[in-house]
Structure formats: C-alpha cells, structure tokens
Design a binder for these strands. Structure first.
Lengths: 171, 171, 171, 171
DNA sequence: TATGAATGAGTCTTCATTCAT
DNA sequence: GATGAATGAAGACTCATTCAT
C-alpha cells in the first residue's frame, strides 16, 4: 500500500491525504479502526448474549463475521510485519486489547453458557474459542494466499463443519 | 526486510549477497525453503504414522512443530503481503502445494486412524485438522503481534489444552 | 549520462525527473526528438526544393545543418552503443526511419535536380548524398573526439571545400 | 562492455584480467590498439604507394579496410562517449595522431598522385579524402545502428559507387 | 479545500577492483 | 599464474512527505 495508490483509490491527490491524516500510520490505523469496529462491537456484547439463541447459531454467526474481518483487516495487519517500527508502536498502543481479545470474549461467552448448563461442565471454553477463531483466521489467510477457489470447501460449508466439530468439544 | 539488513545480519556486504542469490526473491525463497523443509517432511510422513503411538501424542508433536514453523516462516510469509508481485509469483509457483497442504495431510492421518478404529467413526477428520492447525497458526500470529508474554498461557499449556479439546471432537 | 547529472543540469532533484518522464529511456528519446525535429523537418522538405536557389547554396545549407545536428544528437546517439538494451529497442522502433533517411532525402533532391537538368545526367545522386553527409558526420565525430581546434580547417572552410568537391561529382 | 563479459569471453576469471592489465582502461586501449594496428600500418604506407596500381584500385582497397575498421573499432570508440573521463584521457594521449590522421594520409597519397599527373591538378585531395572516409565511417555507423540488412546496398556495391563518385571529383 | 511540483532518504542491483590462498 | 570471495561506490528508480499557491 503506497500513498499514491491510496490517493488514486480515494480520488484525491497525495497532498490532500495529509490534510486528513498526519501521516501514513495514522491513515492506516484509521482504516483498521473503521474495519474492525463492527466486529469489536459484536465481540464485546457476546458474553451478555449467553442463554439466548442456540449455541450453535451463535457460533455460526461469530465464525462468519470472524472470517470476514480476518480477511479484510487481518491481512492488512499482516502487512504490518513488513514495517517493524509501525508494528512496535502498535503493540505498545494496544495494551491489553490486542486481536486475541476476541478469543477471550468468545471464551467468556462459552463459560457463561456453561454456567447456564447449556454446554458440558467438562468442556474447556478457552480451548474451544481458540480452536474456532484459529480455524477462521487460518482460513482467511489461506484464501488470501492461494485464492478462494483453491480451497477444498466453500466458506459456508467450512463454517458448518467447523462449528459442528467445535460443538462436539462442548457436549 | 531490506537487502541492507540481510547483508548486515549475514556479516556481508550487499554486493556479496548477489554472488549467492540472483535477486532478493531467490534469497527469500531459499530462506523459506530451508525453514519449511523439516516441517514439510514431517507432515508428508504423517499419514503413514497412523496406528503407531497414541493419537494424543501424535497431535501434541504436530502442534508443537506447527507453532514453531508458523512462528518462523508463517511470519515471513505474511511479509509477502507487502510485496504483491512476489506474492503473485509465489501463488502461481505453489500449485497444489500451498500451506494448506499441511491441513490435508493431518486430515488424512486422522482418517486412517478412523479406519483403524482408534477414533470415532462420526468425527470429522478435516474439521479436526483445520481446528488444530488453525489454533496453532493464530497462536503464532498472536505471539508475534503482541509478544509471547502477553498471552494468557505458556505454549506447553496451550498445546495440552488445545489437543485435549480436539480429542473430545474425535471420541 | 546519469540521472544524477541530468537532474543537476536541469536544476531538479532526481525524483522530480520521474514526474516528467517514465524512465531514463523516455527522457533520452524526448531529448533526441527535440534536437532532431528541426533537421528532420528540413530534410523532409528538401526534395520539393529542387529547382529553387542554386544546388551549391542548397548543399551548403544542408551541410551546415547536418554538422550541427550530428554534433548535438549524433553523439548522443553514439552513447547508445554503451547501453545495448536501449539500442535494440530503438532499432526496432525506428522502422524505416533511421538516421540514413536523411541520405535518402538528399539523394532524392539531387535526382530531381537531375531531372531539371541542373546537374549532370551521369552523376550518381545516391553516392553524392552519402559522400556529403558522410563527410559531415565524420567531421562532427572528429570535432567531438579530438576537439574542434585540433582539426585542420574551420567548419566554414570545411563546408566550402567539401561542397565544392561534391559539386565536381555532379557536373 | 563489463569486466565480467570480457572475462567470460576470454575464458578467465575477472581477477585474472588484472594480472594482465592494470585496469579496464588499459585493457580497452590494448584491444583498440590491436584492432587498429593493421589499418594504421596500411594508412601510413599509403603515400608511398602513389604511382603504383590504379587510383581506383587503391581507393577501393582503402574503402574496404576503412569500413571494416570503423565497424570494429569505430563503434568501440563511440562507446567512449559514455565514459567522459576515459574520453578526455584518450584525447590527451592521442596528441596529433587521432582518427582523423587517416584522412590526412589519404589526402597526402592523392596529392602525390596529383604530382604524378594521374589525377586532375584542380582536384582537392583533402576534400576527396574526407568524402571517401566520411562516407565509409557513416556507412559503418548505419550498419551498426539499424543493422546491415536495412541498408539499401550491399557493401561491395556501396564501395563501387562511392569510389566512382569520388573519382569524378578527381578528373 | 485541494493540488502540482518538488525532494531527501532509501530501495534493489551492478560495476570495477582487491586480496588471501 | 589463477581464482573465489568480497566490497565501496555508484546507478536507476520509488517512497512518504512538504509547501506555495
């Protein structure tokens, strides 16, 4: 992502970009913020949703959103690895709220469902959350890396099978 | 990764790099190849290991190696997203053998264990493979992104809990 | 000719050059075009000038312009021999219109003068054209190579004597 | 011409080149010297040949050699224009003996033929020499620039017609 | 507000040259 | 006598950024 490309995509001159953002980093973070906000909102509300809908429906919804956001922004975030200064500053700014926070929220949701007796008392909420979101994260990476079509399953089928497997963990 | 950094790290001049590698791309691929080869070897032999050792031990070993290789090379691969020309050429060169191949091999291993009756006939080998490797992949990303220490569990504990959860999928 | 030199001569940074020209080749060709255009124009109109002025005056004028343009651009063109890729592309792009085209036009002019009976029917227009322009071309080369002052004659005297000799060919 | 190319062509390592030549400049000049020596020899003997053979035969022979040497070494010399430091040093080293010396020798040969009454007393030996060698020089340049095949005449025919025209100057 | 024109710092890459072996 | 390994300097080109208008 170069400033020239961003400017062309925005229909602005490069100079105009600098009226809206101090530098490329600020612009980058703004874009990330916009793309992430809906998902973050959804994830933050997640624990309070325990008890409503079925767990299966809930996980399916989360998986879909996760793949979407990981595809959009996860890949942008990966590009951070090419600019270590930015990465370091991000790490610092994140504080406790890194991308693994989503896993924590999903884990907490599952813990509450456990309290409600809707899933097995022996299940591990944290592990289930890591498995589900991890699988979605990797799927987004694969799709970007080799192309959506090169993957063995459609996204819908992937979600269905993956959530079903996670549910087996929870019974 | 700039050629200057690579040169300094190698204790060479930039010019010397070009005696060993035609260009930066060749160097990059050579590094990737070296780092990936052991893991690729392990993964290719995996299906034939069905029946030996316990499934639990096998999965634990795979998880450990996967986290290691995803940490090393997965992150290098992510940097590819900052150089789209390289990414495109890699995608083309990969053919069927992309990074998702590991998931296929693990899935095949589990299918054979299923044939041997060592795991439930109702389990989904493909889903279990995606869950385990996905969780490892994401853990490697998190560790690189926020730092190893910021994660709630040690790697050993993560492997144990994650493999245990996957095994619940398989019984 | 390095981009740094061009930039300094133009009173610009190297980067600024690339706002005006895609690459060094485009810049090079633009310069050549500007320098050559007046001479090309003069040469293309030459055949239609048959019958007007004396042949001697006409040849003197052409010789003067030829030395000037060969000095300016011929030497630039010679520098092409140090960059074979550029040379090859130029060769291809030139099609029929290479630098020998000027010789053809001068030859055609003389042929028409021949039709008008102003020069001998036995003269060879093509040979006369090659002799005159060849002598001018080589003189430009010598002047650039050893310095103007090292040559035995002034340019004016060179033109006079050379044209006179060519005219002896034509009577 | 890079040192790597020279080394490969010579079947040597680049380092070995430096056992034989102090630097690239010395090598370049050695090559030029070897290629030019036979032509220089021929040209130096030229004045003493006045009276033997016909003038026509003599000029034809000179023209052939000139085209050959201009093709070989003239083009090498042109590449000098891309390396001004070398060019300047050459200019200085040349003293009186630059490439225009050949024209002087041919002129002197024609002057002697004039003394012998074998060509017209009114002819200009200097101009005739410049015309003939100039035409050969330019032909060599054209051949190198646009390719031998793109020129209207074969070399043999070019020599014949050009020498004939020069002879018309001399009667 | 928006931009055209400009640039310093840096990128990958190649070159002529050196020297220990 | 020959070379493999190495490099400082330079080359073309790109990037994020500034500023007068």
């Amino acid at each position: 992502m170069t400033t020239k490309e961003v400017a062309r995509a925005a229909g602005l001159s490069e100079a105009a970009l600098y009226k809206y953002f101090r530098d490329k980093e600020e612009l980058f973070l703004a874009v990330m913020g916009i793309r992430l906000r809906p998902f973050i909102g959804m994830v933050l509300e997640l624990p309070d949703k325990a008890g409503s809908e079925t767990v299966s429906e809930r996980l399916r919804a989360i998986a879909g959103e996760a793949i979407a956001v990981y595809t959009d922004s996860g890949l942008l975030a990966m590009a951070l690895f090419a600019e270590p200064a930015l990465l370091a500053r991000q790490r610092a700014a994140l504080g406790s709220g890194g991308p693994h926070h989503a896993n924590r929220m999903l884990s907490e949701y599952l813990r509450r469902e456990q309290s409600l007796g809707r899933i097995s008392a022996e299940a591990s909420p944290a592990a289930a959350a890591d498995l589900l979101l991890g699988a979605c994260f990797q799927r987004a990476f694969f799709a970007a890396f080799v192309g959506d079509g090169a993957l063995p399953q459609t996204e819908a089928r992937f979600i269905e099978e993956t959530v079903d497997a996670v549910l087996r963990t929870l019974v």
